[in-house]
Simulated assay, not measured.
Amino acid sequence: MTSYFLKRVFYMALTLFGASILIFFLYALTPGDFVDTSPKLTAERKLELKAMYGLDKPVVERYFIWMKNALQGDFGYSLQYQQPVMSLLNDYIWNSFLLAITSTFFTWLIAISIGVLSAARQHSWFDALVTIGVFAAMSLPVFFVGLLFIKMFAVDAKLFPAGGMMTIGSKETGLAYAWDVVQHMFLPVTVLTLLSVGTLTRYFRTNMLEVIQQDFVRTARAKGLKEKVVLHKHALRNALLPAITLLGFELPALFGGAIITEKIFNWPGVGQLYMQAFSVRDYPLLMGFTMFLAILTVIGNLSADLLYRVADPRVRLK
């Protein structure tokens, strides 16, 4: 187990090194940057700023400087916000993480529950409704669903706030503050869950249909076990194994996919920072956020491999 973990950490380091090269040169070789595109700066001031931030150096030298600083936890300085990139990400990333982890929890809970029932009742009216709902959810664009929910639940019904993370001017603390945040996050979490649950439900349904046709499931039924025990203790445990692979990509995908959702609901997350930084070509911030997604991806893959052992004790990590 220890040797496997150390080997995977070594591969993770190599993967992140390759990702850092792609990320840096993708942005560094793109024509123009924050200084070049600023209309209020004179040519002399642009040259001063480029020298100050090291933008006048050769691109290869800039990469090694950026990589050296990144290994020390310094991903550069945001030219737009005039703050260190890590400080900005630390201020906003937890708001995005709150949306991502909450929607991931509800997505998996709903997808597993509906997928198992749909597979157990194949070709029933419930299975047909699930299939229609899954394809409908997969075909709807996020901006349409987000604006529709704001119109229905915030503007017309006035059940939930239309945007933001908390009520403007609110000085609530403790449970009152937590309840205010929960009310504001209800609509964005619902949108993210609705748009993510379709694909995962279909995946669980397919896995369950394959598993319940295998010999060990028929043997469990022949022993007289209850159908609920057969489905949840025997079939679901085996159907989870292929789905665990998807778990490694869930959080990075949600952080990336939540960018539009955060913009629609004016949620103060890292998606807002990314969109604004992209519009003004604040490359240090863009590189820092993209590198953060790469780190999340490799950590997610490692977590998925370790979860294989938890879901099925027969799996040996070598």
Rank of each mutant, 00 (worst) to 15 (best):
L293K: 02
Y274F: 13
G269R: 10
L71Q: 05
L195A: 03
R314E: 14
L47M: 09
F17P: 10
G271T: 04
G257C: 05
G256F: 04
L147D: 10
H123M: 09
F149E: 05
T15Q: 09
Q80G: 07
L192C: 08
N95W: 11
M152T: 10
R314G: 04
A258F: 12
L98W: 07
Q214I: 02
A120R: 14
D36W: 03
I264S: 06
I260M: 10
L175M: 13
R316F: 01
M67Q: 02
S118V: 11
F143Q: 00
A220E: 11
L147R: 15
F126M: 00
V181S: 11
A128H: 09
A70R: 01
R202D: 00
L246C: 00
E44K: 12
E172T: 15
D56G: 04
V211T: 05
N95I: 13
G163N: 13
L79Y: 12
L192G: 07
S279A: 14
G224M: 07
A136W: 00
N95G: 05
G163Q: 15
F25D: 01
K171H: 10
T190V: 15
R45W: 02
G54N: 02
I65V: 13
E44C: 01
E48G: 03
F34D: 04
R221I: 03
S196G: 12
G288R: 01
A162D: 08
L129K: 01
P242N: 06
T199K: 02
V189I: 15
G169A: 07
D312R: 05
L225F: 14
R45V: 12
E44N: 09
G54Q: 00
I21E: 00
A258V: 13
G169Y: 02
L6S: 15
Q213D: 04
A294W: 05
F289K: 04
L195N: 02
I244W: 10
A111F: 02
Y27A: 08
L49T: 03
R121H: 15
K68M: 13
R309V: 13
I212M: 08
S3L: 14
G32N: 08
V211A: 12
F143R: 05
A178H: 14
F249Q: 13
M67K: 07
V189P: 03
K158E: 12
S96E: 11
V155S: 08
L79C: 03
L88F: 09
A43E: 14
D305P: 07
V116Q: 09
V298S: 12
F24R: 06
L26H: 06
N266M: 14
P284F: 00
V9I: 15
L293T: 04
R314V: 02
L307F: 08
P268L: 08
T201E: 00
A19W: 00
G256M: 05
A137S: 14
D282T: 06
P39I: 05
T193R: 03
P141F: 03
K57F: 01
P284E: 04
M86R: 00
D127H: 00
L129T: 05
I150L: 09
K40F: 11
G146S: 10
P141S: 06
A13P: 00
S124T: 15
L14D: 02
M138Q: 11
W125E: 01
F10G: 01
V130M: 01
K171F: 08
F135E: 00
